[in-house]
Design a protein around this nucleic acid. Sequence first.
DNA 1: CCAATAGTGTCTGTTAGACAATATACA
DNA 2: TGTATATTGTCTAACAGACACTATTGG
Lengths: 243, 243
Amino acid sequence: MPALKLASTRRDFPRPYTTVDVLIFTVVDDALKVLLVQRPSGSDDPFPGLWALPGGFVNVDLDADLEACARRKLREKTGVASPYLEQLGSWGGATRDPRGWSATHAYFALMPADGVVLAKGANAADVAWFTVDDALLAKKKLAFDHAGILRAGVERLRGKVEYTSLPAFLLPEPFTLPQLQRTYEIVLGRPVDKSGFRTRMMAADFLAEAGVVESGSNRPPMGYRLKDRDAPVFFPRTFSPRG
Amino acid sequence: MPALKLASTRRDFPRPYTTVDVLIFTVVDDALKVLLVQRPSGSDDPFPGLWALPGGFVNVDLDADLEACARRKLREKTGVASPYLEQLGSWGGATRDPRGWSATHAYFALMPADGVVLAKGANAADVAWFTVDDALLAKKKLAFDHAGILRAGVERLRGKVEYTSLPAFLLPEPFTLPQLQRTYEIVLGRPVDKSGFRTRMMAADFLAEAGVVESGSNRPPMGYRLKDRDAPVFFPRTFSPRG
DNA sequence: CCAATAGTGTCTGTTAGACAATATACA
DNA sequence: TGTATATTGTCTAACAGACACTATTGG
């Protein structure tokens, strides 16, 4: 039965490279940012000098599974241990890496900018935050198919922000409702009604009061923490304006 | 610079197996079905005799990219060339395959049952449709982590059916609005209001009239085809009843 | 004229969005 | 009291869900 024999030996066929890449998002200076790393120049690695998503080969000895691999890379680049992390999808093919057939598993992470210590130098290449719109507008050529992956990630993020509490993961706790609203507006790229926003947030019941926050010469806002830092909440409806 | 050397040689690290699995859904006998294949018994392949999702190793020579690989496996099992196909996610880890670290890229496909010719015998193991609820209720142990993948696929399908035209891909054309409504009800597992259903479908503007269909002893319904067989339409709101 | 299914109309409670009003701080 | 921001209240048009009604076929 040759067919069976083929199936049995297929495991010895050439194996594609397996990598994991992470889209790390945050909000700084009223803009949505993504973390990119510069590929080493002058080496025999592909795309020398270009900016790329942080990531790399799965290490069969270190990584128990794909998500663990993503968290390891996250930790190595940012020092942040447990941000919000979600699988985005996978990209694989014969031509995306000049070294051969490869498949990457892409994740995206949301984190507040404050606790991040960018791991430059030493065993890490240069690392920096880029405004996503700049990174997407092809001013900057990204390595591999990372531009497409970034585009997909931003699209997924913008889409889910319409009906989830995801932006809350971009803020340090405690945060105020005006701050949260501002974050929604930054990600969505459009203003959001104040009253409706607050009603929705409170109705979703995912915020816990954390005492008023002192501010300047005006009414001090209430601070909030997430009741559950592990998962976002889904709103019953979308944010879209009349239509 | 040892770090760079490490990065450069990392490509020679042990590589995980790369596979693609496909969740093939259809509706038969008023039930949502999924296609499973029986793993060969008596061979040295893992999980002999158990039912599994159709899939297997990426063939670096045959498959230009992951989606092409999924379509190839789809064609091999069902004879259907271009059904609706969407990436579901990826699952990878050290223990899911006893042969070693492996990662699978899961897709899900929707197709009408009528044109399918199940490819039994010869180089394919036994192939059959299973009602998803039966397959999920652990009456049947699936190979690998396929039970979890199936669960995720059904969840994704049920979720998206609330706000997309996906069920239309489960029907042969031309189909009628009552048939389409029935399909929604089968996937969702609950009744849907007739009038509201029709209003939504027409408002979404994705159906083209295809002449009345003759039926038995009653008013003949209008037949419809999809304006675009490549992508579903997204409704502005969800189906959920009051609340 | 009856049975059976297809298709349309109508009514009503809910609600999202727009915007106005009030609250609370500091100077 | 004035200014700046936070927070709450109100009003209304749109609409989803429930359900009743009409349409069209065959017997």
